[in-house]
């Protein structure tokens, strides 16, 4: 029974299938909104789905310089870890698995898709990919500091005098005391987190690693067919996972009493967060340089998050 239930959680909801479908939908929303902001009609909402299926139908070329196992295995590892993260994030009050300190588990699981991208790109043997993975790794180091600070601030706020590294505890605290976002000491942290999300997903101003015009899509350069499709799916899923993480950290306290309604509210909030921090920034900015990106995250964004952490530690 417990195995069956875990199987359902992992494969269907809120694991692989739900995350994949909704992630693709969210990517469609993102593209549509960006198009509307630029006064275009834009692709249909199902466009990422078409892209994914088309890529499944294409030939997968493995260049002779590539290491076949790493080249094909990397996207799958990324996919699995993304499906797993969703199990730790409370989807509208429903957490598939919770343990103590699952925030750190999330923090680590969320680096795995990035690592998968790096290993895959690196194993393709292309020098463009070499530059791409270097940028991807620097980006990762850049956003990790503010991300960690935000998580610690939230944990401290939700825990009070004891430690609360658990997402469920954060959700319960918010259900009791109102949303984390409306605590004024947490506002800098929320802003920092809003800036961490696009870097983690790798959308427009922070997509230095996959810059298609300068380094030919970086780590993805040699990928084609279904392996590429998996990577595209991964980045769509990451969009959902990160916006979901933001929602459950800062807007997690909304309880209507019905699980279905809670889930719908969660989904709507995810869409809002995506539009706010990915589409809008995407539509109005140009790509950063890698050293500027690093500096931006370690000074401005980390500063905001640290500000929150200190306020929380002062008991505010």
């Amino acid at each position: 029974m417990i195995i069956l239930r875990s199987l359902f959680y992992i494969l269907i909801f809120p694991g692989a299938l739900f995350t994949a479908c909704f992630g693709l939908f969210l990517a469609g929303v993102d593209r549509k909104v960006v198009a509307r902001m630029q006064h275009r009609i834009g692709p249909p909402l199902r466009q990422p789905m078409y892209d994914f299926f088309k890529l499944l139908g294409k030939e997968t070329i493995i260049p002779h310089a590539a290491n076949k196992i790493a080249f094909l295995g990397a996207p799958i590892i990324g996919f699995v870890s993304l499906a797993l993260i969703m199990l730790f994030i409370p989807v509208g009050g429903l957490t598939a698995f919770s343990g103590n300190a699952d925030m750190i588990v999330i923090l680590y699981l969320i680096t795995i898709p990035g690592v998968a991208l790096i290993v895959g790109g690196s194993s393709s043997g292309s020098p463009y990919a070499g530059i791409g993975i270097s940028r991807e790794m620097v980006t990762m180091m850049a956003y990790e500091l503010p991300f960690v600070l935000v998580l610690l601030a939230v944990a401290r706020k939700a825990g009070g005098s004891e430690l609360a590294f658990s997402m469920e505890q954060v959700a319960n605290w918010q259900a009791a005391n109102g949303n984390m976002l409306f605590q004024w000491s947490m506002i800098p942290a929320a802003i920092a987190m809003l800036l961490v999300v696009p870097a983690e997903v790798g959308t427009q101003p922070f997509d230095v690693a996959e810059a298609e015009t300068e380094i030919c899509e970086g780590p993805l350069i040699e990928y084609s067919g279904s392996a590429l499709g998996m990577f595209k799916l991964n980045s769509a899923m990451k969009m959902f996972v990160m916006s979901g993480l933001f929602v459950s950290l800062f807007l997690g306290g909304i309880r209507t009493g019905f699980v279905v309604c809670d889930v719908i509210v969660f989904i709507l909030l995810c869409i809002v967060v995506t539009i706010l921090c990915m589409s809008t920034i995407h539509a109005v900015t140009a790509r950063l340089k890698i050293e500027h990106l690093f500096k931006f995250y370690w000074t401005f964004v980390a500063g905001m998050a640290l500000c929150s952490l200190i306020l929380v530690w002062c008991g505010l």
């Binding site: 298609e212 899509e217 990928y223 590429l228």
Partner: peptide, 8 residues
Amino acid sequence: AGTPRHAD
């Protein structure tokens, strides 16, 4: 697309 591998 940025690379021929992605192109249709």
